[in-house]
């Protein structure tokens, strides 16, 4: 859908996928998004790098990243993207069940743009996305509709 933000949700728990999707859905008026889901860290990297089977996708406008993931965990994925010049401008929001200070600190150290502890309410998610909004809306020159 034209003018919609492309979001990559990296999450292995299907219930959590469902809940996050539902939350984002409820914010559709303020944040019109298209959600793509991958279920482990390696898939996330493949997706963004457009490696097979993800040959023909758009680079996501932002990434919601869980920490505890199969194959490569959230920190590895975060570090991978943030240390690569091609991808480091993609905003990454850690969306995780851990509210451990150490995990939060490590996330910011590795360059995450925001951190959300699950379970997240729509209000919290909205405010976090808004705080990031200035950044990606201006840099990506999105439609005026989204500038709230």
């Amino acid at each position: 859908m034209d003018g919609q933000l492309e979001v990559l949700l990296v999450e292995d728990n299907t219930d959590h996928v469902f809940l996050t999707k539902a939350t984002l859905e409820s914010l559709r008026e303020r944040f019109p998004v298209t959600i793509h889901v991958v279920t482990d860290g390696q898939e996330a990297i493949d997706y963004v790098e457009k490696s097979p089977p993800y040959g023909n996708i758009n680079t996501p406008d932002f990434i919601l990243l869980d920490i505890k993931l199969p194959k490569r965990d959230g920190f590895e994925v975060l570090e991978f993207f943030k240390s690569d010049a091609r991808f480091k401008t993609i905003p990454i929001v850690m969306l995780t069940s851990s509210d451990d200070e150490k995990d939060i600190a490590r996330s910011y150290e590795l360059g995450s743009n925001s951190y959300i502890s699950k379970p997240t309410g729509t209000d919290e998610l909205a405010s976090k996305l808004e705080s990031l909004g200035i950044y990606w809306f201006t840099t990506n020159a999105l439609p005026t509709k989204s500038t709230l």
């Binding site: 728990n13 809940l19 379970p119």
Partner: peptide, 17 residues
């Protein structure tokens, strides 16, 4: 603890919904 958290979060999420 960490593994217990995931289903709990789902429960709380669905409760809210």
């Amino acid at each position: 603890s960490h593994d217990l958290k995931a289903p709990l979060i789902a429960i709380q999420g669905f409760l809210t919904m």
